[in-house]
């Protein structure tokens, strides 16, 4: 019999509610809370352990929590990892996502969670793990667990080609061709769709075009010669030891680096860790991506008031829109505090 592990928060483990949300990670042998139902529903594996962690604890000590849980799992044999269901609870959803991501990376097993469509964890993690379409409140527990178990059973049986719509998990951004059971030629599908479109009736496109989420262009800076300008890039320019451990692709981390007293970025002191292009030019001269040299010249000429002391960095390749948005929101807080007037955003 294959083995499964479930991650839940302090509330569903029966430890307590908000007052106990600082509960530190713990791995218990056997079934706690929702694990009982999951074990009952799951056909192709038995649930052997339950991981419990407070939502606050992982929220404010994410790396530490993930590290401790991964260490705890090292001695345990398991073939699949579950987390949740997290319903509409945002912190719980994110926690499930972070743990699943880390478990998948380290142990190479499939991971399954369940969240309500409005849980922010869906946008953040749907491409990385199977997230069953869950209810918004805990009353849906049994139903949600059933869906998680169904997905888990198929994965355990080696049926990897699951269709999102049929299996009721959030599309992972993986599109492939398939032959529907009632095959209808494209000609008939096209004419039927057109008739509906002409009649103003509802129809379903077979290729949904993602809504472009455009940001309005900001008003021009009134007087550049008085403005404090910050530099920012998605080209992965970091100090050579990459102190913030920004990933080379699909980044979830960002860093800010002090350039006080530097009139350019020195090769060998800074480099790129971006995996999406040939790094030779940027390693030889990091200013081609982060133009500190030119900005310092502008500063001297009085074209700009001041170059802000830190530049900001992350990696754009493979990074999801959701992660990019989150990182930007975090960075903006710093910039506002530092009274930055404008940002020069450099891509690659």
């Amino acid at each position: 019999m294959k083995k499964a592990v479930l991650y839940i928060n302090q509330f569903f483990a029966g430890v307590g509610g908000e007052t106990e949300a600082d509960f530190e990670p713990e791995i218990r042998e056997g079934l706690v809370g929702p694990a009982l139902e999951l074990d009952k529903q799951l056909q192709n594996a038995e649930v052997t352990h339950t991981v419990i962690c407070g939502d606050n604890f992982i929220g404010s000590n994410q790396e530490e929590a993930v590290k401790r849980i991964l260490e705890g799992l090292e001695g345990i044999e398991f073939d699949i990892f579950f987390a949740g269901p997290a319903f509409q609870a945002g912190r719980y959803g994110s926690a499930c996502g972070f743990i699943c991501r880390a478990v998948r990376e380290k142990f190479g097993v499939e991971t399954v969670s369940s969240m309500h469509v409005e849980n922010p964890g869906v946008l953040m993690f749907k491409k990385e793990l199977y997230i069953a379409e869950g209810g918004h409140i805990a009353a849906k527990m049994r139903k949600d667990i059933k869906k998680m178990a169904n997905i888990g059973d198929k994965l355990l049986a080696g049926e990897t080609m699951l269709r999102a719509e049929a299996e009721e998990f959030f599309p992972r951004g993986i599109r492939h061709q398939f032959w529907p059971e009632e095959a209808k030629p494209a000609a008939i599908r096209a004419v039927e769709m057109l008739k509906k479109k002409l009649a103003g009736e509802e129809y379903q496109t077979e290729l949904p075009i993602p809504k472009s989420d455009r940001v309005e262009i900001a008003k021009p800076v009134v007087d550049l010669s008085k403005a404090r300008i910050a530099l920012m890039n998605t080209g992965g320019i970091v100090p050579v030891d990459n102190p913030d451990k920004i990933q080379s692709a699909s980044a979830t981390r960002w860093g800010k680096y002090d350039i006080s007293g530097m009139d350019h970025l020195e090769s060998g002191v800074f480099k790129t860790i971006h995996a999406g292009f040939d790094p030779a030019a940027a390693d030889a001269d990091p200013n081609v991506i982060m133009p500190i040299d030119v900005m310092r010249a502008f500063e001297k000429e009085g074209k700009i008031g001041e170059l802000y002391k830190d530049f900001y960095s992350t990696v754009g390749t493979g990074t999801t829109e959701a992660e990019a948005r989150r990182m930007a929101q975090e960075i903006v807080v710093h910039m506002k505090e530092a009274q930055v007037d404008a940002v020069l955003m450099v891509s690659t």
């Binding site: 080609m161 699951l162 269709r163 999102a164 719509e165 599309p171 992972r172 951004g173 993986i174 599109r175 492939h176 061709q177 398939f178 032959w179 529907p180 095959a183 209808k184 030629p185 494209a186 000609a187 599908r189 096209a190 077979e206 290729l207």
Partner: peptide
């Protein structure tokens, strides 16, 4: 790759295939 299937995607209208999320 499917690319080399002879007139395989049948966009002129035969295609029984479609695309979906997995």
């Amino acid at each position: 790759e499917n690319n080399a299937m002879f007139c395989g995607d049948q966009v002129s209208g035969w295609s029984p295939k479609t695309m979906t999320e997995f």
